[in-house]
């Protein structure tokens, strides 16, 4: 199996420039990877999840979105990722836009973000912040408890040693966003109904 991994990492020229990032991502996801010296932390995994949600996110075709010049993954509140998110997004592109990691101070600042992570430090202000973002095409993610009840879209939860997530489709629909059914397939819980059919 090691041979396989090495063969894959060696062989793919198009992936060569992303080699380091790949290894990093793999290390974050898989604890047994031989190239990693220590086990990835909980926030390493959550950062990878945030990064990967972008791949399953479909943004609406509206001026607020087409104005964007970058695909921003924003963090509101205390940043617990410790640079992992920056390493993952560096030199990455999403739908032709360069990915960036941005720390924002308020919800109003986050209206141009593609994904907004609300840190658990925001647990007391979450209702107001989500209200500020109402209608904006921003995917809101948080690991604070009862995030979905507050009107959030994706809640990260710990199930044993695994990081799982739940999705509130009504909130996603309200923001005019769409999540790939692939993502919903691996969600531990999905509330609400998909908008229209599952195109």
């Amino acid at each position: 199996m090691d041979v396989e991994a090495i063969a894959i990492s060696r062989s793919r020229s198009r992936a060569r420039r992303c080699l380091g990032r790949l290894i990093a991502a793999t290390c974050l996801l898989v604890s047994a990877a031989p190239l990693c010296a220590q086990k990835p932390t909980e926030y390493d995994i959550k950062a990878a999840y945030l990064f990967n949600f972008g791949k399953f996110l479909r943004v609406p075709d509206e001026p607020a979105v087409s104005r964007r010049t970058s695909f921003d993954i924003c963090v509101l509140g205390r940043n617990d990722f410790g640079g992992t998110l920056e390493r993952l997004t560096a030199n990455e592109q999403n739908n032709g836009l360069p990915e960036r990691t941005v720390n924002v101070a308020s919800a109003a600042e986050a209206k141009d973000c593609a994904i907004l992570f609300l840190s658990s430090s925001e647990v007391d202000r979450v209702d107001g912040e989500l209200a500020d973002l109402a209608g904006a095409p921003v995917l809101t993610v948080s690991d604070m408890p009862r995030f979905l009840e507050h009107g959030g879209m994706i809640a990260l939860e710990m199930q044993g040693n695994h990081v799982r997530f739940s999705v509130a489709l009504d909130a996603v629909n309200r923001a005019g966003l769409m999540l790939s059914s692939e993502l919903l397939k691996v969600a531990s819980r999905v509330t609400g109904k998909p908008k229209g059919d599952l195109r």
Partner: peptide, 27 residues
């Protein structure tokens, strides 16, 4: 998976041995 370890398995019935894979040729 990307680490080369089995991520998921499927066998049609009982008594069928695990799959012996071959390394994918480059390119």
């Amino acid at each position: 998976g990307m680490d080369g370890n089995p991520f998921a398995n499927y066998v049609r019935g009982r008594g069928i041995p695990d799959l012996k894979v071959q390394p994918m040729p480059p390119h």
